[in-house]
Amino acid sequence: MSKILVIAEHLGGKLNSSTARAVSAAAAVKADAIDVLVLSDAPDAIAAEAAKIDGVSRVLTIARSDNAHALATVLAPQIAKAAAGYSHVFVPSTTFGKDIAPRVAALLGVAQVSDVMSVEAAHTFKRPIYAGNAIITVEADASHTVVATIRSASWAAAGNAASSAPIEALAIDVTLPTHTRFVELKQGSSDRPDLQSASKVVSGGRGVGSKENFEIIYKFADRIGAAVGASRAAVDAGYVPSELQVGQTGKIIAPELYMAIGISGAIQHLTGIKDAGTIVAINKDGEAPIFEIADIGLVGDLFKLIPELEQAIG
């Protein structure tokens, strides 16, 4: 009997698509119940969105002013309490989930399975190690709660259900620490598609050369309706903000189309794009390792080729 609690990720009153992806992983366990837990100061609209996800049995909400920001120190004790009676707690493997889930696991005194790529059985999972250069099968002890983070790129988001699941308010009696406080979130404002869920992504690397030059990447991305990503080298050099980094230590993404422009293809970068549908590489060095995994490669100078591409698109 599996009963799974999925922790909802949300920001600015909107549910993140990583939640529906975690629900897909829960569905793969063939659970008897999948409940989604929304912790927020104002959970109603988020809960209503979560209730529409196919496969969800119930949506539980904990409305508390302390939950206005996703602080692990504040959320984890509530999740650990709410986990009573569940066989699994699934959390998206995003910076939100990576921060919170291990804290929950430690409070429950159990190990955590990070970055679940596939569910082999209720307590058997596959996950990547060594930047995705090895995939291991791990078995969790069935007598303990399984706490796992779900690798978003491996799971399609569960669709919408015909009817909404019931929403119930949960009263959790736990004193919360005040030693950790939210100060601010500096968010890059952009009308472009979200990097983590976009179907097309155009990424630039060190080869783009400067912050000013990066405009050519933004412009091309806008032209084809793509999100913008970057290599670590481009972020480190200050061409783009850190949230655009794709790779082992940045975002792991699975768009239908990924275009790597002026990116050499280091293992740590490739880890982030292995699940992309079609990978296109544009690089002036025909020997660049990116061509080993690209589905379509084009050798040449990006500053010449991008305008030509725009023209050819017509």
């Binding site: 990547p128 995939i135 099968t137 078995e139 990978i279 379509i296």
Partner: peptide, 19 residues
């Protein structure tokens, strides 16, 4: 409470084409 039972190489992407 966790046991690794198997190690595998990741699925390889097939070689692409150059245009």
């Amino acid at each position: 409470h966790l046991r690794t039972t198997h190690y595998a190489a990741p699925a390889k992407r097939s070689k692409g084409v150059m245009v």
